[in-house]
C-alpha cells in the first residue's frame, strides 16, 4: 500500500506555480528565483506533486500567529 503523504495532516498544501504566477511573484518581491528559499527535488512532497527543477512551489500553511501563511520555494537539485 502506498500512503499519500499529501493527505497527512502535518504536510501543508503545496502547489506548483504557473509561468504567469512566477513572473508576478518575482515582480512583487523584486527578486531573482535564486533569492527564494529552496526545496530539494528529492523532497517527498516535490516528488508527490511532480515538481521539476526550477519550479516554484507555493506552500499554504496554518500559522499560530497569522492563521494562514504563504511561502514559496524554488525546487533545486541540491542545496549548495
Amino acid at each position: 500500500m502506498k500512503f499519500d503523504i499529501l493527505k497527512h495532516k502535518l504536510v501543508p498544501h503545496h502547489e506548483i506555480l504557473s509561468q504567469e504566477e512566477v513572473e508576478k511573484l518575482l515582480k512583487t518581491y523584486n527578486i531573482k528565483k535564486e533569492q527564494l528559499p529552496r526545496m530539494l527535488l528529492s523532497d517527498p512532497v516535490a516528488k508527490a506533486i511532480g515538481a521539476k527543477e526550477g519550479d516554484i512551489v507555493k506552500i499554504i500553511r496554518k500559522s499560530p500567529t497569522a492563521g494562514i501563511s504563504i511561502a514559496y520555494r524554488l525546487v533545486v537539485k541540491e542545496i549548495i
Binding site: 518581491y29 523584486n30 527578486i31 535564486e34 533569492q35 527564494l36 528559499p37 500559522s63 500567529t65 497569522a66 492563521g67 501563511s69 504563504i70 511561502a71 514559496y72
Partner: peptide, 22 residues
Amino acid sequence: EDGTVRTTTGEIVQFTYGEDGV
C-alpha cells in the same frame, strides 16, 4: 521595507515577518 525578512544578499527568509507581520 516590504515586510519580508532577508539576508544581506537579499535572499528571503520569511515572506512576512513572523508570518503575521506584527
